[in-house]
Nucleic acid binder design. Structure first.
Lengths: 388, 388
DNA sequence: TTAGTTTGTTTATCCAATAAACTAACTTTA
DNA sequence: TAAAGTTAGTTTATTGGATAAACAAACTAA
């Protein structure tokens, strides 16, 4: 039977608590009086809620603020050190882990190379990484509040890993594995979804409610934030836009389709378009050559941007969001690709849709997915933790 | 300043009222005791809510039901005749209006041809249609609760019509125009969005939470229902998937893009693929010929299905919904197109995504958009109407 | 010094949900 | 046919949020 969410006073308290906590996070430091003003809640309601938040160490008072012509207000701030969160981005050939406070500020950061690691070695490295973070974590009332992990593959609604194309290991129930070892809530998410959420919570687009995140690597992954929430689809498989056909007569893709976007607009495609001796060139070298105005490279990058622009136009026609974030080292490092994309998009997209949507390179860079994983953990902690 | 939704007891009552009303709508007739069981609300809470709903004529008692071994329950039903709603679908060359009760049952229905009407004539016909419905509407406690209108064009978040490609008239503020004349709430919506909502509320997919609706006509329009709600995008322009590129080198489209899906998979494209003397053939004739196994026609329809399948694969990769509804007379009338689509989709879509999503022809047919407009009106009436 | 302002708490009240006790109306059992 | 058991729905007292109003505290400005 379907479980229905009934409403009662506990729900009211929980909703208003979230309202107040969100305002404190956004406008810290802030007084009870101002909270009452901007939320519309009664002064006494705010006082009561603030007291419970103080008792539970979620916030604390930092003393008196500036007077506005009367009694000086007591300023409240979010207690970002009430607990800590770990976020881990498991890539095809790397592992990027961060330890953050409850505001997402990075305390520790560690990256490992996985290019020659077996499945059991990956597991060992992962466990060692987390244990290392736990050991070096400062004392706090709540300690480690959870672990968020993202992987480049399909993750279903029960956080089971269903399919990982470019990887030779597959631990289906990663959540259970980690939860058993560390005894804290664990969240497993798709890499692009995590990146999208990271950009929504901590990036340039933190004040937007609807964004599309596009991560361009070996393939193309996409994540959707709709009405401030990750849209994962019914099964959890939403956003496989890398496999959108942009040429129905195009070459066969490993997914079964033809002429998929990522066959033209991924880094793999970019490398394939270069001359033979450059096929194994690194991202850094690509940017360096572009900075030296290497003509062949600039042409290849323009071509790269051209194809990204084609798929992007489809996405803009589909979604009508406030911003699209592009997560790719080359795009973040040299302006030529983004400029080409913008040209291509504005020549293709309908004039009525063009004007409002921002096209931005990722501001969080390679940490976007790990930060997204962290914010899923923090969100859950702040909304789930029971308050008497 | 942003208006924040604070929570209080009024919200609790409103939420639980909706819960109870929804269950009565779904499982009518139903007793107070059963309502308490399936919602999880306390018996006395249900009694109190039911009493207010009775006072306000939203529901009524139809007498005692079957005993389950004790006192016989008093059965409650939704009062579908408490008021009436009007839904109007303004097409490129037609106008389809319906008058319904609060359950969406059609009381009156009227279609007019607009193929040779000027802007002022359209307005006259529209007004006459509504006046006619109002005149023939039965007596009821609430009378006409609102009018929903859908148009084939871009409608922004303030219900202003921004752009209508295939039409020579454009009354930007249609909402104000109708509201001034009839003094009831008026809702203006895009045709595909309305159709999607109609299928979500009254169609085969009424129990699904995430669907994509694709309306194939002169062009292709799409509507999205995500988490039971219409996703309209930030500006209200979401779902222009007809202008998704499926061949980036393809022919120029009027929208500015190249190789748009609707250049290949619309009815316009189907007609263009037929031989010269058949260019002005009607939909009915197309189906008749297909039923007579006319080889040329069957080939054309297979081709039609092929191209629909290509775009549909992109949509399935993007959304991961429970069902996709195809609204098109030919598809609803002859199985060959849908079969071709299904073949094409399953050969193209990734095996992990394929299995769950249903592909269905519209069960509401040409009334889908008008019914969607009606359900927007009814939704608003049931949730907005204040209860003491 | 005094009046006025802003901040935050206390107090009494309201109201929706709830549990428990109750009445009502039926079925089953003996 | 009477008693016991069961289900339906109401009544009553209680809980626990939010709220308005009164209040105390701490400041500014005149």
């Amino acid at each position: 039977m379907v479980i229905i969410q009934i409403a009662d006073q506990a729900l009211v308290k929980k909703m208003n608590r979230k309202l107040i906590l969100d305002e404190i996070l956004k406008n810290s430091p802030i007084s009870r009086a101002t909270l009452s003003e901007i939320t519309g809640l009664n002064k006494s309601t705010v006082s009561s809620q603030v007291n419970t938040l103080l008792e539970k160490d979620f916030i604390f008072e930092i003393g008196a603020g500036q007077s506005r012509g009367g009694r000086r207000p007591v300023m409240l701030v979010f207690n970002k050190n009430a607990g800590y969160s770990i976020g881990i981005d498991i890539g095809v050939d790397y592992l990027n882990g961060i330890l953050t406070d409850l505001e997402g500020n990075i305390i520790l950061e560690k990256t490992s190379d996985l290019s020659s690691s077996s499945a059991s070695e990956v597991k060992e490295i992962l466990f060692a990484l987390i244990h290392g973070f736990v050991t070096h974590m400062p004392e706090s009332p709540y300690g480690l509040v959870g672990i968020g992990i993202c992987v480049p593959g399909l993750v279903d609604r029960h956080q089971q890993i269903i399919f990982m194309p470019n990887l030779n290991w597959n631990i289906k129930d990663l959540q259970f594995l980690i939860e058993s070892e560390f005894n804290v809530p664990v969240f497993v998410e798709n890499e692009a979804n995590a990146g999208a959420y990271g950009e929504k919570v901590f990036g340039m687009t933190k004040n937007y409610e609807n964004i599309v995140y596009i991560s361009i690597n070996v393939g193309i992954g996409t994540g959707l934030v709709i009405n401030n929430e990750l849209y994962k689809g019914v099964q959890g498989f939403s956003g496989e836009m890398g496999h959108m056909t942009i040429d129905f007569n195009g070459p066969k893709c490993s997914c079964g389709n033809r002429g998929c976007w990522e066959l033209y607009a991924s880094e793999k495609a970019l490398l394939a378009s270069l001359s033979k001796e450059e096929k194994n060139i690194s991202r850094k070298e690509i940017v360096e050559r572009a900075n030296k105005n290497d003509v062949e490279m600039l042409n290849a990058l323009q071509n790269f941007g051209f194809y990204i622009g084609i798929g992007l136009t489809n996405i803009l026609n589909t979604f009508d969001v406030e911003a699209v974030i592009l997560r790719n080292y080359i795009i973040e490092s040299h302006p030529i690709v983004l400029n080409t994309i913008k040209n291509e998009v504005s020549s293709r997209v309908h004039s009525h849709l063009d004007n409002k949507c921002e096209l931005l390179p990722s501001s969080l860079g390679k940490n976007a997915p790990a930060l997204g994983a962290v914010s899923i953990v923090i969100d859950s902690f702040l909304s789930v933790t029971p308050i008497s």
